[in-house]
Write a protein that binds this DNA or RNA. Structure first.
Lengths: 206, 206
DNA sequence: CGGGTGAGCGTGCGGTGTACGCTTTTCGGC
DNA sequence: GCCGAAAAGCGTACACCGCACGCTCACCCG
């Protein structure tokens, strides 16, 4: 009966994501999103109860593009690897959202769908419910930690070069390791750690 | 010749940590730390360039208590597990600092020392420099992710119960897994994921 | 063609981090 | 024993933040 809404929650989320992609996460504010949409700041609150809810929708938007269909025709380890990689590439398209993705992932519908698929792969591989739960949590832990490693402390970044310039007598291994590690591509690092986990899963009791 | 300082960086860090332990991370502000110390807000800036530096010192303080001596008389896998567990317990004593620990860990002196020890264990186990680097990064990824899992989305928390109440026809595996997982102690979850990683390392080429 | 309902907005409040300049304290050298 | 330098410590002020509150006005239904 009353005046119809002119925006959808999707509009809000894409506007917020645009702001993040342009100005970084620090540039995200209710005022910035409002001007991005061409409306007044307080109008946002007709669509969203508070800033946190807006952040959650951004996370949902970023992860909504992840294909949650199980990769067919491969051993289950490769299926899991594929599922993890999909999340990695989706997040990599919007690196500024990494802190949001990490803190809000447990409230994201997309993550729920993805988790369901992962559990399905684990079930098909013969894991008991309890071991499925532990495996999923371990995979999530590695995934979020690796995303932070990659975007907040990249191996090819200044943190590593700072380590490489450490006095070798105080840190004989670390200083050398850092200069070695600075040449490892992020994708390879992600894959290497993931392979360790998957290898552990292969050997684990089901 | 000039007036001497009345506080040390340590004082600042402990005051900030006190505020966090009492009021949570959201309660941490320059004003709160200053009143905790009984000084004016702007006096803090004689000791610290900005808030971020203060946060880094809090992280250093929390992690300074971690024993970085390699646990002797055990196979290298158990040594690594012990080193990870030490970080876990140190952080668990101040759960409010988890987000800080995660974002500032790469600039912490304590973490550098710890990493040097981990690399030493890996070297003694025969890993090449490159594989040492990859293993360390994987362990760090799992560690930070697991800490976030444990403190920001605990298995025994409301997030899990919310998952358990999901419609079983939409999420047949996830809903059941959640109610199962709610009874897993955090320490066991941490250990289980870590064991997967260590098992993978055991089987990996050196 | 009125009336009710909610969309959209303007103002304002309490909070944040911190730039800037002033006052106060401490000391080594006379 | 005093004095001047230099840093410690502080007060004020600014720009920005999230958001509570109440108003106006556009829209749809009867």
């Amino acid at each position: 009966m009353p005046r119809p809404r002119s925006l959808t929650p999707q509009h809000l989320a894409t506007a917020a994501l645009t702001v993040i992609d342009r100005d970084g996460l620090a540039g995200l504010s209710m005022r910035a999103v409002a001007t991005e949409l061409g409306i007044a700041t307080m109008s946002l609150y007709r669509y969203v109860p508070d800033r946190e809810a807006l952040e959650r929708q951004v996370v949902d938007l970023v992860l909504a593009g992840v294909d949650t269909a199980p990769p067919a025709g491969q051993p289950w380890q490769r299926q899991l690897a594929g599922l993890l990689e999909r999340v990695r590439t989706a997040v990599a398209a919007h690196p500024g959202t990494v802190p949001l993705t990490v803190t809000h992932r447990h409230t994201s519908e997309a993550v729920r769908q993805w988790s369901e698929t992962v559990l399905g792969v684990l079930a098909a591989a013969g894991f008991t419910p309890r071991r499925r739960a532990l495996a999923l949590r371990a995979l999530l832990a590695y995934l979020t930690g690796a995303l932070q490693n990659e975007h907040l402390a990249p191996l090819a970044g200044e943190g590593t070069t700072a380590l490489a310039e450490l006095p070798p007598d105080a840190y004989p291994l670390l200083s050398g390791t850092a200069s070695e590690a600075a040449r490892v591509p992020a994708a390879e690092e992600f894959r290497a750690g993931l392979d360790l986990l998957l290898s552990g899963l292969s050997a684990a009791p089901r």
